[in-house]
Amino acid sequence: MPEGGISMSTRPKRIFVSVSTFILVCILTDPARAQGPPASTVEKIVVSYPSRSITSFPILETARQKGFFQKEGLNASIIYVRGGIDIKALITGDIDYAAASTTAITAFVAGVPVRLVMSYNAHVDQVLFAQPKYRSLAQLKGQPIGSLNPGGLVDTLLRRILMQGGLQPERDVVILNMGGTPERYAALRSGSVAAVMLSAPHSFRAEKEGFYKIAAAVDYVDVPGTGIAVRADRVKKQPGQIKRFIRASLRAIEYIRENRSEMTQMIAHEFGMDQEIAALAYKQLLELLSPDGRHRMDGLQLIVDIARAAQKVNRQISAPQLVDEAPLEEVLREPGWLR
């Protein structure tokens, strides 16, 4: 081995140690672990979210701040873990629950043993914003449009919007892979593209700054957003804990719906938004929230098919194979949940 080099047998170990160490540091420095009942009376769990967005973070943070996890005997550490790494950490046991959907579906199609146990968002949050001079899809013909990785959810939603608007994505526009929402938002502001796909809060900022809202993905193709993923064997080994996690999440969702002023303040504080944008973000969150935690199988199937096509998987895979809602259904049958 060359001096100072890393052998192939050593590199995976170092990568694994790095991911595990990062997660351990997040857990040890999380103030939530210093709160709540004595350690002997609670179960410690680690929950990850892939981005600080309105789709999942407010639910998890509300469950933590309002003590819903603690009331269920769970001492939850809520940490950021980038999408993709979160599923790997889920499988290795470094985290217990992951707020994810697309990454979990992609992993499942590739053969990774994961399951979705509840839905946080019934719909996805993606909007096509354009420079002020463009007022319709037809006017975008021949123009560059910022998207994410080809074959991914954002790119697929964009292509569906264009096709239903009478444009052929491969012929009539130039689709550019520009990275995440902040990068696409920056490209729109710089004028280097005619339009981009955005999600909140950048979508609200774009509208406030005068960019034109061409289309909302939910009006063209309706797929679900974030769900909660677990390792497949956890459903059988720890169904009671999963039910307590679901119960805390449902209480958080209910609290968000019923406390507009407080939640608007929380969004403004946590996301660094002004009150006007925070109010818009709260309204958007209400529209995204799942009514009962159940998954919309038709929308999930579309994402499964997208992942199959991207990975060139020929075997048939149905969305119900990915979902295990038995713990959720047991919770919903408890008094007070079915409305």
Rank of each mutant, 00 (worst) to 15 (best):
Q126M: 14
V17H: 06
L280N: 02
S77R: 00
E262I: 12
A319G: 05
L158C: 06
A252T: 07
P224Q: 04
A107T: 08
G272V: 13
I105K: 00
Q284G: 12
P224N: 03
L250Y: 04
F271L: 15
A268Q: 06
A34Q: 08
L188Q: 03
V112S: 02
D233F: 07
G180R: 11
K236S: 14
Q311T: 03
E61G: 01
I256H: 00
E334F: 12
S199I: 09
E262D: 12
I54W: 02
L188H: 05
T106W: 05
L332D: 04
Q131V: 11
I15P: 00
R14L: 15
I79R: 00
S56Y: 03
S20C: 08
R160G: 09
L198G: 04
I78E: 03
A187D: 08
S20A: 15
T92R: 07
I23P: 00
V196A: 13
L176M: 06
I78F: 08
E170D: 15
D172A: 09
G142V: 08
A268W: 09
R294T: 13
A279Q: 10
R231K: 14
S20M: 10
E207R: 07
K312T: 10
Q316W: 09
S192N: 10
G180T: 12
F16T: 09
E3N: 05
V218S: 10
I228F: 04
I253P: 00
G210T: 11
P12D: 08
E183F: 11
R64K: 10
S136H: 11
R135T: 14
R294V: 07
G142M: 05
A200V: 09
Q164L: 15
V313A: 09
M1F: 10
P31C: 08
G36M: 11
K237W: 04
E254F: 02
L280W: 06
V17T: 06
R52S: 12
D305H: 05
V223E: 02
R171C: 07
G299Q: 01
V218I: 14
L148Y: 13
